[in-house]
């Protein structure tokens, strides 16, 4: 289903929000690279759910508000937004940096959160196993690290990005660095509060993830023991691109089960 895309006014400033579908409410929180638009994954999810895909403040088309300094600010912003939009029973799906954001929300308040899906999430650190250094990689290195299927990486690299795309990449890169330059894509204090995550949680990961190693799936499960875990073979850091049907099924079944 095609989404409406609009700039909405919130307490924290303007926000670009894509929304489509009917059913249980699903909030997708994007990663450091943002979203290029309405992806096939969103299309499929919006067949069964009321799907919201915002550009985080300072990412994509959402302007940078004065108040934004750190990931906790975004967590409070989204908790406020859920109240403002009068959303109830929200199923949060966070990808990569969006997973970290979802966890920062969950440890603060799960009052309106019905379930949590962590997709190749960052936010904690396994000593000796850092997240790949996205900020120093060349475009070739980045694409090859993102996808298990090197043909997809090659096709992406062969494409000449539009000026709008380049602007989006620059904006998102800068915004991600603001939140995650140091400590690099994690909050050293997060893991000691992860016991507060009590909503049904699932952990989804690509077995070949070269940005955030699949070892993190186990690590998150240590802190959130009730979480279930699904690992997709032959998938990289964006499993919903490489394993679209499988990831859609995992999310849909999990959300339906917990609605």
């Amino acid at each position: 289903m095609q989404a409406t895309e609009s700039m909405i006014k919130t307490r924290g400033g303007d926000l670009l929000l894509r929304r489509a579908g009917k059913g249980p409410t699903l909030l997708f929180l994007h990663g450091a690279g943002g979203v290029p638009g309405w992806l096939p994954f969103f299309d499929k999810l919006s067949d069964r759910f009321d799907l919201l895909v915002p550009d985080h403040p300072s990412f994509g088309k959402s302007p940078k508000p004065e108040w934004l300094d750190e990931i906790a600010d975004l967590a409070y912003f989204y908790l406020d937004l859920i109240d403002e939009l009068k959303l109830k029973d929200v199923h949060v799906v966070g990808h990569s940096m969006g997973g970290w954001l979802a966890l920062e929300m969950a440890i603060r308040s799960q009052q309106r959160m019905k379930s949590l899906t962590l997709l190749a999430s960052v936010g904690i650190r396994i000593k000796g196993n850092p997240v790949a250094n996205l900020f120093i990689m060349t475009p070739e290195q980045l694409m090859n690290a993102l996808y298990a299927d090197k043909k997809i990486a090659a096709a992406e690299l062969a494409r000449t990005p539009t000026p709008e795309e380049i602007d989006r990449i620059v904006i998102n890169r800068t915004s991600a660095a603001r939140l995650a330059w140091s400590p690099r894509f994690f909050n050293p204090k997060l893991s000691k509060w992860l016991h507060r995550v009590t909503v049904p949680t699932q952990i989804l990961w690509g077995a070949e993830d070269q940005i955030v190693s699949v070892a993190y799936a186990d690590e998150f499960q240590k802190f959130i023991p009730h979480a279930t875990k699904t690992i997709y073979p032959n998938a990289g850091h964006i499993p919903f691109a490489e394993k679209l049907d499988d990831v859609t099924a995992s999310v849909s079944n999990f959300v339906m089960r917990n609605s």
């Binding site: 900020f135 120093i136 060349t138 475009p139 070739e140 990005p161 380049i166 602007d167 990449i169 620059v170 904006i171 890169r173 800068t174 991600a176 660095a177 603001r178 330059w181």
Partner: peptide, 17 residues
């Protein structure tokens, strides 16, 4: 690194082959 330099220079970096 991101933010160190102007968006114009950053555009060249993210597209550098």
């Amino acid at each position: 690194p991101p933010g160190y330099t102007s968006p114009k220079s950053m555009r060249q970096i993210v597209t550098a082959k």
